[in-house]
């Protein structure tokens, strides 16, 4: 896959800037390094069974990170990724448990998630509110509302359609789920949008220099609205994938989705300052987060320590971004 913003290697450029020409090379090296460490310390890590599990464990965060990438590319941030996705699982689960048609229930939940993105986008683009505050508010509102709706507790969702993406198939000795395929398909579609279409080019331009984008006639506000709505749609689809992973609607689920999705995006090389990076890096970044959590779990390390390590990772990645920005 080519980079979104191809740059010719300058003849006098050092190694660092030359590796920048291939955007995902850094994240790939990090991924390989983690894999190497875990493979050496635990022979079970590289077993096909475990690799399949890593992929499946990456589905939810990996798919949420697609929406997160879109928002961050516009120089925004989305702190409601997990909450919107949980909204989807609870609404779909509740409706199905009440006896409504599963497909319509899921569709309704996805539409609701899209609307939530649309509202956030409207607040950001029309009222010029900081994305940080808008999505933080959304997080608070949704978290509370969902606990109220579900009376605080999780409930099982036993339905063939809602659980569909958890069905498995074999590729050699690997066991994959349809959820993995759906995630990869979403990556491919949004990658195409970002890299091969006018719409994607304008996302980069807005993240880079919104004033320049406005001056050349790009409808910046409308475009931002579309970005947030698309992100919401993606979180809604993720809700379906999440129900395929775990047939349970839990208002307290996905507590680390913000940390994990933002880490995936920035470690994948997308700049928090907007306009730079892309989805190839994010996919690698999501795998890095997945490998890290899986490897630490195999080593018997408490999930709280995993959060701690992920926290360090995101700060290191942002520090790199900041330093390379200063050099520009």
């Amino acid at each position: 896959m080519s980079s979104a913003t191809p740059s010719a290697p300058d003849p006098d450029a050092g190694l660092l800037s030359r590796t920048k020409a291939i955007p995902a090379i850094g994240p790939v090296l990090v991924l390989l390094a983690f894999c190497l460490v875990f493979a050496i310390t635990n022979p079970r890590f590289l077993a096909p069974h475990n690799l399949s599990i890593i992929l499946q464990q990456t589905i939810v965060v990996g798919t949420l990170a697609i929406g997160q990438t879109l928002v961050i590319l516009t120089a925004g941030i989305d702190l409601a990724v997990g909450a919107v996705c949980v909204l989807g699982t609870i609404v779909a689960g509740k409706l199905v448990n009440l006896g409504y048609d599963p497909m319509l229930s899921m569709l309704f939940a996805v539409i609701l998630c899209t609307l939530s993105g649309l509202v956030a986008g409207a607040l950001v683009s029309r009222l010029d509110l900081p994305p940080f505050i808008v999505t933080l508010g959304t997080l608070g509102i949704l978290t509370a509302a969902l606990r109220l709706i579900s009376k605080g507790g999780a409930f099982p969702v036993q339905d063939d359609f809602l659980g569909l993406t958890g069905n498995t198939f074999r590729v050699g000795s690997f066991v994959l789920t349809y959820g993995v395929l759906a995630m990869l398909l979403l990556y491919a579609v949004v990658w195409y949008l970002l890299n091969e279409t006018r719409w994607g080019r304008h996302v980069y331009a807005i993240g880079n220099n919104p004033e320049a984008a406005r001056l050349v006639g790009i409808p910046v506000r409308l475009h931002l609205l579309q970005v947030y709505a698309l992100a919401g749609l993606i979180y809604g689809i993720t809700a379906w994938l999440a129900l395929g992973r775990i047939p349970n609607a839990d208002p307290n689920a996905l507590q680390t989705a913000n940390l994990d999705s933002i880490t995936a995006v920035v470690i994948g090389g997308t700049s928090l300052f907007g306009g730079r990076g892309g989805l190839v890096g994010t996919l690698i970044g999501a795998l890095i987060v997945g490998v890290l959590r899986n490897g630490l779990t195999l080593a018997g390390i408490d999930p709280l320590w995993q959060d701690l390590v992920t926290g360090i990772l995101v700060i290191v990645a942002v520090a790199f971004d900041q330093l390379s920005r200063r050099r520009r």
Partner: peptide
């Protein structure tokens, strides 16, 4: 400078 710095010249 009304340009998008991270994009290339044709873009």
């Amino acid at each position: 400078l009304a340009v998008a710095p991270a994009l290339d010249i044709p873009s």
